[in-house]
Write a protein that binds this DNA or RNA. Sequence first.
DNA 1: CTGAAAGCGCTAACAC
DNA 2: GTGTTAGCGCTTTCAG
Lengths: 352, 352
Amino acid sequence: MPRRRQAVTIKHVAADAGVSLQTVSRVINAEPNVREEMRGRVQASIDRLGYSPSIAAQRMSGSRSYLILTLNDRDRTIEAWRARQGSDWVDQMLLGGMLKCAEHGYRMLFELVDTHDDHVERELTATLAALQPDGVILTPPHSDNPKITAFLQSRRVPFARIGSKGKAGGIPLVMGDEDAARDATRRLVELGHERIGFIAGSKEYSLSEWRKAGWRSAMADASLPLDGLCVRGDFSYESGLAAARSLLALERRPTAIIASNDQMALATRDVAEEMGIAIPETLSLISFDNTPVTTFANPPLTAIDQPIAETVSRAVELLIAASRGEELPHLPVIVPAKLIERGSTGPAPLAG
Amino acid sequence: MPRRRQAVTIKHVAADAGVSLQTVSRVINAEPNVREEMRGRVQASIDRLGYSPSIAAQRMSGSRSYLILTLNDRDRTIEAWRARQGSDWVDQMLLGGMLKCAEHGYRMLFELVDTHDDHVERELTATLAALQPDGVILTPPHSDNPKITAFLQSRRVPFARIGSKGKAGGIPLVMGDEDAARDATRRLVELGHERIGFIAGSKEYSLSEWRKAGWRSAMADASLPLDGLCVRGDFSYESGLAAARSLLALERRPTAIIASNDQMALATRDVAEEMGIAIPETLSLISFDNTPVTTFANPPLTAIDQPIAETVSRAVELLIAASRGEELPHLPVIVPAKLIERGSTGPAPLAG
DNA sequence: CTGAAAGCGCTAACAC
DNA sequence: GTGTTAGCGCTTTCAG
């Protein structure tokens, strides 16, 4: 194997422009103390030679690595990929993150970390040592993992926590779950629904509680009863089946149901079909997340979109801003989620 | 900003183990010329101190970067992400690639490159200079882009080409499209079908022709006619509608149709429904790719799975092997695709 | 405002 | 087998 070296280095540029390495470095990093004329001359050489700095070398010399690292839960992510249920969480993260990184000349890395393991710290140490990212983005449930957040804080690596409000350091960002749940519930009330069921998600994710809180508060605002209308699932299709069955077996059956994710909504639809309950004529259905399956379902599901791309994009932006010492906005950052009306919601059936 | 340095470096390990840097380096890289006893001592220090080498430094010193770079088409990928049609191509690439990389202590990077641009070379130069990957994986349609393949060859960067058989250098890997199309056609013949329509994909992708060739050859083997039974689409849902309409308007209507991707198959299903043609009773339908939508469709679609994860996994494996100077298998590498039978295929209807 | 020198963490090449 | 030396490409001091 030949010792592969950089084709064109800062030296070549310096020689070509007739200046010192240092001046070229200053131009690359948009630093002050360079005359405009010099800057122009150096930039011309850079363009002509097609020079691009090696991030390895930049990192080595102790400055930035121009790398933003996204950390996802290993087991869950792999399981989701293997199951091929069509969730595009990772894709949306990449969409939002990579584009924003590119805008600022950064690269986004995507890595999996094992939470089970007792050696989360070891694994993190290794990843950070190897990659030396300028910022880290944590996704649920890592965002609330005290081992991880404490470790990152101790290492003084800037990090963002998606889907977390807690005071665990770093930059927390949430996706307007509570407001969106409230909006969805209100919309159903507008449509004349009075008994609106709610299928909650696993307590392991804090957003489960936020979603539920939104529903509760909108119900309270409308002076509607909550009795027996909330059932807990765990985000799986199976748990959705059980939850839907229990809701639809109620004496005073709900005329609308909000499910805390698409899989449980799909399960609810299937239970309704099995019971001969028509959607949306007899039962309105709203789901959370708005993964691609919502549009392929029959009828297409009205859903609350989870603005993953935008949230990750914001996270990248804030991480870069923070690394430059710029001021941060009020935390947590809230990225609003929108209700997308499709075919699974309609006016409440006439009381019978 | 504090000058962030490695917490524990090779020096610390060397000091701790009482050996030279070089010996530690040899242990890290599993190189020969180290006594077992030494190796053990050094490894113990590594473990105790929680040492992990900096890939930046490793790359700097002229050896490997332990980075494999995957290049996808920028516009198409972003468009697919935005459209949220549920294609999990990227996810499957990551699944196959990241896990295999991890096995060998490599990291996988995912980047987008702009093909439109006349400055593909500039963009590639910059990416390679910045990242210095040990290997590059090209996906369609990049795999057949002569600008890209020629550039990579001139730079002597090892690369793999997914979905390409051509002699453009690097390691070509294909996903058994022709064989799979043949198998699918045969299966329909077994089920008694004699008029089997085929909706081809865009010529821009070579796999379109391979799929078509498989169908043709199986039809020929069964001495079945091809007249008017092949229509070309462009992989879009809309093109699928047109193609399906023209096939189903034939005087001697096909009793089975193979669509070159899932979107066109979905379109075919919709046209059939609109015409009152029952699936699978009156029309059998097979699609290519097996993206998640196939399982959510009604009926679930019989499909030919595209083994993306496995193919990318193989690509990583071969790239790493090649970088070690190991011998490569016969090229192109063919990763077989399997037919997955679901609810859209059945026996041919009785001749009427 | 610009340049020279030192060093980041690691490995290639060579000596022992 | 093992250690020593000299860089890799860049940025950080610190002089001028």
